[in-house]
Write a protein that binds this DNA or RNA. Structure first.
Lengths: 243, 243
DNA sequence: ATGGAATATTATGTCAGACAACTTTGTGGT
DNA sequence: ACCACAAAGTTGTCTGACATAATATTCCAT
């Protein structure tokens, strides 16, 4: 990866370092190069490196010790999700050690329910795009993902939508919207009949449900997501730094 | 709050700003003072203010726009937990709009099970302190919290322990340990008989379980926590900034 | 008056260099 | 072998400057 000008430099440094942690170039528990060394190597100022390191530390990837050095959190590999991407289902699957893939189930149009209209700031009955997808972990179906998006936001023919893309790419390509932040509600629920149709496992067992609201620029709600999965197979674990 | 020398200055600034957001001095959606104004007001350098702001941004509390300003996330009040304190049950309760209080149920000693010994890096059968507490939201019992801690870590008489303290204070006062980070596993489970005894609600309904491992210096595991609560009453919602 | 381009202002992002605070390691003397 | 001290290395904080981006203002041409 090279330093470009599109994203902020600090965010690019952040991604580079995160990639090195994921790839095992910086091993769990080991000390990473000092701020000065990184700033020399990457050709950015020490202040920029510090910004990136601060974000990684806030998200629990690294631990910093004054006068000593910066260390990779020894338990990064025991966590399946991280704060920057709790809503990223593919990351959740790969974080559990499986190979993620997506199956496109269906795409539909239907009027919004009262609750959906409220959350998405729409009139009741406005038309929604209904996207249903199934996430696989090593060929095994594990997450049933439903997303609803206001039809009025669509900027491309609906039949062009590639359901296998990442949700963030879908928004960029077909809706010309960028996700600025997300709000996720974690619920415990029982396996319903429609979910059981796609996910292996007995009906009536307790499973996790992630209800996600995506927001774009100016706090405009973009979409609503409901994702259910069996947490006995797919663990949802998070690391958090102390101070 | 005054700037002291004990904690890092940036962390103190962080806490001050967070307090102002919580207290509504900085309202959701509004723009907060610029970095220069804050550095003048608090008597610290702009670099230090930036460190604090970077952490708040990483945790979704604020949004930063180059050339424009820094804004409080409009939805802070819709989130019950934040990444820095998912394991902080009192914060979870107050984040839901209730007044938290703690009832001390029991404290016991028993040998560690095989699984507990593995997680806590102990010999099987080593003695554990078993702390059971009940968290209330406005006088209503909502969270059943079990914590197990190796007896060998205790640095004070066991009968002195005040079960109403924050878990972080318990570690500092009676174990002389500081929590450096925590690892939380979020599970969906069914209301068991022993939990139903303390929590209102029908048996067999789906509830959330937070399994937390506390780590101290040098990645030493300090304690194990199992907290169960009904997520239909106490919502677990998280905000995450995009990039 | 009005619309639009140029300019000024203000905010965050990045850079450079310096010193402070802290930890570890090495050195030398006893 | 032990202890006090110095040295080196790393993160934390400070200062000042410029770059970049968004917004507000001014001014001119229509």
């Amino acid at each position: 990866m090279r330093i470009l000008q599109s994203k902020s430099i600090a965010n690019q440094v952040d991604e580079i370092l995160l990639e090195r942690i994921r790839d095992g170039i910086y091993l769990p528990g080991s000390r990473i190069p000092s701020e000065s060394e990184l700033s020399d190597e990457l050709g950015v100022s020490r202040a920029t490196v510090r910004t990136a390191l601060a974000k990684l530390a806030a998200n629990g990837f690294i631990l910093r010790k004054q006068g000593n050095g910066t260390y990779v959190n020894e338990h990064v590999n025991e966590t399946s999700a991280h704060f920057g991407n709790l809503w990223d289902l593919a990351e959740l699957i790969s974080g559990n050690g499986y190979n993620p893939s997506i199956r496109f189930l269906s795409i539909d149009r239907r009027p919004a329910t009262e609750k959906e209209a409220l959350v998405l700031a729409l009139e009741e009955g406005e038309e929604l795009i209904c996207l249903q997808r199934l996430f696989y972990a090593d060929q095994q179906p594990v997450i049933l993902a439903d997303n609803v998006i206001p039809y009025s936001l669509l900027r491309a023919p609906i039949e062009n939508i590639d359901g296998k893309l990442h949700i963030r790419e879908i928004f960029e390509q077909y809706f010309h919207q960028k996700i600025s932040f997300v709000l996720t509600d974690i619920r415990s629920t029982l396996m319903a009949a429609d979910a059981q149709e796609f996910l292996s496992g007995k009906a009536g067992r307790a499973i996790l449900q992630l209800q996600t609201i995506f927001y774009g620029k100016n706090n405009m709600p973009l979409a609503l997501g409901v994702n259910v999965f069996d947490d006995s197979f797919l663990h949802l674990s998070l690391a958090q730094a102390w101070s």
